[in-house]
Design a protein around this nucleic acid. Structure first.
Lengths: 230, 230
DNA sequence: CCAAAAGTGTTCAGCTTACACCCATGA
DNA sequence: TCATGGGTGTAAGCTGAACACTTTTGG
């Protein structure tokens, strides 16, 4: 039997809640579901679950995302721990919030539906249970910070994307609009995008060139003190 | 008896560890102690403790700081939760790290000593137990971010301080040196410091004017979209 | 009177911002 | 041929970085 060093101290339920962002080529969205157990059954909730005795916090978050999406290589980052005594009216539970970035295109829509999950635009979020709205606000701030200083935004885009798409994504993230000349210059000047000899003609007759993110070049530049910045 | 909603899920020990920074007018320091219980008894450790069933994470952090220092109005900010299964060789414990800023001058040195705690310069940290060094590194990054964009640095200084002192503090935080003309211009231009008609002659014959942070003015400026930046 | 720290302005480069027209093409 | 979205360059202002001398005064 395991040695008991900390007998006398309280144990507490620990959960993980995932703020899952997706981009559907025009809007930044959040994946939520109707909670299917008491308390607050049927209410809008983040996707979450309890941390098991034999898994780390990160592993718990990955497991929960895998159960929902079948995907394993998801961008994931811890936001914060929430620990108010009464935050969960069921029993005292501490929750660690994670934010995740998904390419919606990669997603099995059927699987999402089976879990009772659905996407809502971040510009019109419903009321969520407990402190989940607060978690989402923090996650949005974190996303903005990350997207500015690391090529995190590309996690939301398909492998090949156009500059108007990229700009649209950033405009959604920051809920603002950018001058396209300035935006393009800044992005291209970093020299981490490779232009393909192929155009997306789905949104215009002229067509927009596809680009892809050159991960190798990016890491090479990082070695030399390069700092991503949009 | 309380309703048991979450029976069947595992409960886990939850601890709080505090990264306590102090400034002694020449060096940025971290408060650590020799752990006085097993496992790892006698090793260098952050100041921490278990979260009780009836207190929030923030309350636990405040309690631990109060027990150590007798102070209640300490700047405190959550960093992150650490949840690797084996991070604590005693029993499985999740730890939530907090960083705190203390004016060393306000501190009862005797009280600190009674707890077996002591200050070490952040430029030469010893090996700490578990993942505590990792927590400290994150805290230093957070401190740098905060000190740049919010007047958090003043939490480390006495109520009245000189500009050379302020610059020295920032140089320690960023482990670099600044041009004094540029630094002074930038700080004074924000117009949130009030110069007192009083000089500190302890470090020079000419004497350096004391300033104090004008909190009211700062909050007034914030209302008008002002952004603190050093 | 002198050593030692406090205090003071200006210039240049680079980055950010603002701004308007031509291009390509399918319908 | 025309409507639509894609693509391009330049000038002005602002911010950050570099840089050296004067002032004060206790010892």
């Amino acid at each position: 039997m395991e040695k008991k060093y900390y007998a006398g101290h309280s144990k507490i339920f620990v959960a993980v809640d995932c703020i899952i962002f997706g981009w559907d080529d025009s809007q930044l969205k959040l994946l939520i579901l109707k909670r299917n157990f008491e308390p607050a059954k049927g209410k809008n909730s983040l996707i979450g679950g309890f941390v098991r005795g034999n898994e780390s916090l990160d592993e718990a978050a990955r497991r929960i995302l895998f159960e929902l999406t079948g995907l394993t290589d998801i961008y994931l980052e811890q936001i914060n721990a929430y620990g108010e005594v009464d935050r969960d009216p069921g029993e005292r539970t501490i929750s660690v919030a994670y934010f995740a970035l998904l390419k919606i295109q990669n997603l099995d829509a059927e699987l999402i539906k089976q879990h009772g999950a659905h996407w809502v635009p971040i510009s019109s979020l419903p009321k969520l249970i407990f402190d989940h709205n607060q978690m989402v606000q923090k996650a949005i701030h974190r996303l903005r910070r990350r997207a500015k200083s690391e090529p995190t935004g590309f996690e939301l885009l398909p492998r090949k994307f156009t500059l108007p798409q990229l700009q649209g994504l950033y405009e959604e993230i920051y809920q603002t609009s950018f001058d396209n000349r300035n935006f393009r210059r800044k992005v291209l000047y970093m020299d981490i995008l490779k232009r393909l000899n192929e155009k997306d003609k789905s949104t215009s007759k002229k067509g927009a060139f596809y680009y892809k993110f050159d991960r190798k070049k990016y890491y090479r530049l990082l070695q030399n003190g390069f700092q991503f910045d949009i």
